[in-house]
Design a protein around this nucleic acid. Structure first.
Lengths: 245, 245
DNA sequence: CTCCTTCTGTGTATGCCACAAACTGTTTAT
DNA sequence: ATAAACAGTTTGTGGCATACACAGAAGGAG
């Protein structure tokens, strides 16, 4: 029925090199290109990853890359999947909850180590082999849980979303601290104090001054990450119990 | 102490026009520019919003915009805040849970109506006056809830994250349906069937085939949105109970 | 009323980007 | 030996954000 409905971009993501019959041996390869791109991104951020700069760092011209990669988007797709290659499932207590917590934390940590991941356009996040393997790990954790496949998919999807969102907040915090750009939460106080008319946003003001008084949880900490993760997992637990009761 | 530590970009976000004393009257304005940019984005997506095209649509040159807007990033910041201007808090049952649910849904719906919002670079999402007002609404909902300001901030932050993540999934689904690009979840099946070696990803395969058999929840529906939202709110509820018990 | 300052919008230019097309030279099957 | 298939380069196009120098308009000061 559905013969070769696989989009070519996806096929290349999974594809083996498929040595050609004639012509000179390629000295370049998608592999080497992606490696160079990753190094550039690590060193100078995703903005530094242009076809020209990647090629330059390998000693080639920009156009040479197009022999091995359909477009820049495809290069970014490969780059995105490459991140998942380094993920290792940490040991955990064995129950699904600590398993999913470990799975989620491992991802957040990986993104924090390579913040440029968050700058990737989202269309690029297609299911490559490495990301697929990592997803499988989550389903292994959920093996004994009595949910339908669809429900498991929804739960894992929710956690995957949470990973990106939480990592985003953390990375933003770090970046704000490094540059002179303002930190989101700290900004609220600044805005309230200096820009907003006093009396607007009364509840917000109350919450913020209250927050300033108490024992301040420093932003960008494990505790902050665990807070959000804990809430989401609590919600999942409620759901699981409602389905297995 | 902290004299004028407000970043100028933020000040302009909040600033009043501040008519100059001399010189010709400005025929352009940041307001008109942002409106034109929004129309362009609605019609052709965020990629179509370049300084040149925005200016063109108003009958000016690209450089004219820079008299009213510091940079393209600032234009995008104004554009981002403008979205929040249209948000209206829907009526709800009155308890904090249905209040937060309504607050979250309203945002998701707003983003679905203007999907290009998700293409905005995140550095651009600074607290403008409209977004601030919308945030205040959430804190109004939480007024009677016995949490510290910091805790409320964390909860609202979590929901705000969830909005973006959920909207992202929905928008991606719609876009995939329109273009020939593949849908994430559907992709998993395609990949498993055509690309992955059989036997890899056994749990994933089991979950997916199981999902295909049962009564299929169509992607991109209210039910799908409510599922994730419900789980997050369940988690919040567990947290609130643990703090107020 | 005049002049000078200040302001608006334009013209032009720079340096970056992704990518198209045509080319040179190499390897291998025939 | 020859021709097909391939790798990498050269050159060029159109787009982008934005710097800089300018022409003209409008108002305040004399």
């Amino acid at each position: 029925m559905d013969e070769q409905e696989v989009p070519p971009a996806l096929r290349r993501l999974w594809g083996r090199p498929e040595r050609p019959r004639r012509g000179p041996k390629a000295s370049l390869s998608a592999e080497r290109i992606v490696t160079a791109a990753a190094e550039l991104a690590d060193a100078e951020g995703l903005a530094a990853v242009s076809m020209a700069r990647v090629a330059d760092s390998l000693g080639y011209t920009a156009m040479a890359l197009y022999r091995h990669v359909e477009s820049k988007d495809e290069l970014l797709a490969l780059l995105a999947d490459r991140l998942a290659a380094d993920l290792v499932m940490p040991g955990h207590a064995g129950d699904w909850r600590s398993g999913l917590a470990a799975w989620t934390r491992a991802q957040i940590d990986a993104v924090l180590a390579r913040p440029w991941f968050l700058d990737l356009p989202l269309a690029v996040l297609q299911p490559g082999p490495h990301r697929m393997r990592w997803l499988e790990e989550a389903f292994v954790v959920l093996r004994e849980v009595r949910l339908t496949g669809e429900e498991k998919l929804a739960v894992v999807g929710l956690l995957a979303q949470h990973v990106l969102a939480e990592a985003r907040v953390q990375v933003e915090t770090v970046r704000a601290a490094e540059s002179d750009t303002a930190h989101p939460v700290h900004d609220f106080e600044t805005v309230l104090r200096h820009l907003a008319a006093p009396g607007d946003f009364p509840e917000l003001a109350a919450a913020l001054t209250g927050a300033g008084d108490g024992p301040r949880t420093p932003a960008g900490t494990d505790a902050e990450i665990d807070f959000g993760l804990g809430i989401v997992l609590d919600g999942v637990e409620v759901f699981v119990r409602s389905r297995t009761a």
